[in-house]
């Protein structure tokens, strides 16, 4: 009897002491706080709080696309203000109508400076810069000269400025890429017919409208295929000359 009691108590003791011990995991949250504190206290004061960098778009960009990507870096958790200024409907089309050659540097510069006088009140957007200090935003531009002013809220004087010229959309480049060599004639006929169709619409109305969605190609009335070829060559040359003339658009 006595032996039974002893053995029973021993068994109970063993069961009692080998129960599972529970514990809470405290590691994750506190180590996070520790790291945050260490990083915050060290070198962050060195960081210039109003420092903003804009990588895209490049300054004095000439493009045929109305949406442009704005991207850059700014301090984490800051607010970035983007102002987009545009000019009312002054476009390169006027230039060609007045028969100013596009590779006349002086005329181009004059035209460019003139456009700057006509900036409309800007459309403003606020971007919240999150962690990692990067921001990316698509911006809508109008035809003609646009100015983008990007700065950190509160530090307007330390912002960055970019000038972008939105040209009319010419489909020549696309067409040339898509040319099906067998149907060469077909493609040019199409181009010719499209440009003629749009010519019939009142071109004066176009200047009054603010948003030009379907931009017409240059006013062309080619007589035969050879002149069509010449026209596309000219358009190519114009496009390449615009690219090389970027330098002339620099501000003083």
């Amino acid at each position: 009897m006595f032996k039974r009691i002893i053995s029973a108590t021993i068994v109970l003791a063993i069961i009692g002491t080998t129960g599972t011990v529970s514990y809470t995991s405290s590691g994750k949250i506190s180590s996070n706080e520790k790291i945050a504190k260490k990083i915050n206290s060290s070198k962050i004061h060195k960081f210039y709080e109003s420092n903003i960098e804009v990588f895209q778009p490049k300054d004095n960009l000439v493009t045929s696309h109305k949406t442009v990507l704005l991207s850059g870096k700014a301090p984490e958790e800051s607010k970035v203000v983007v102002e987009v200024y545009s000019t009312p409907n002054l476009s390169l089309k006027n230039l060609t109508k007045n028969n100013i050659a596009l590779n006349n540097d002086k005329a181009l510069k004059e035209f460019y400076d003139k456009q700057q006088e006509f900036f409309l009140p800007p459309s403003t957007k606020e971007i919240e810069v999150g962690s990692f200090g990067i921001f990316v935003q698509e911006l809508e531009l109008k035809l003609g000269l646009n100015k983008i002013n990007v700065y950190i809220k509160g530090s307007e004087d330390m912002g960055k400025v970019r000038f972008i010229y939105v040209n009319e959309e010419t489909n020549a480049e696309d067409l040339i890429n898509d040319i099906d060599r067998i149907n060469f004639l077909k493609v040019f006929k199409k181009f010719f017919l499209e440009s003629n169709k749009i010519n019939e619409e009142d071109t004066e109305n176009v200047e009054d409208k603010e948003d030009i969605e379907n931009v017409e190609p240059e006013d062309v009335e080619p007589e035969n295929i050879e002149s069509i070829k010449e026209e596309t060559k000219n358009i190519e040359e114009k496009e390449s000359s615009i690219d090389t003339n970027q330098d002339t658009f620099q501000n003083d």
Binding site: S31, N32, I35, A36, I39, E77, E128, V129, G130, S131, F132, I134, V136
Partner: peptide
């Protein structure tokens, strides 16, 4: 991009990277 911009996510990324 939006995921990286959230503070709770970037904290976790930094912690795990370290």
């Amino acid at each position: 991009l939006e995921i990286l911009m959230k503070k709770e996510n970037s904290d976790i990324i930094r912690e795990k990277y370290i």
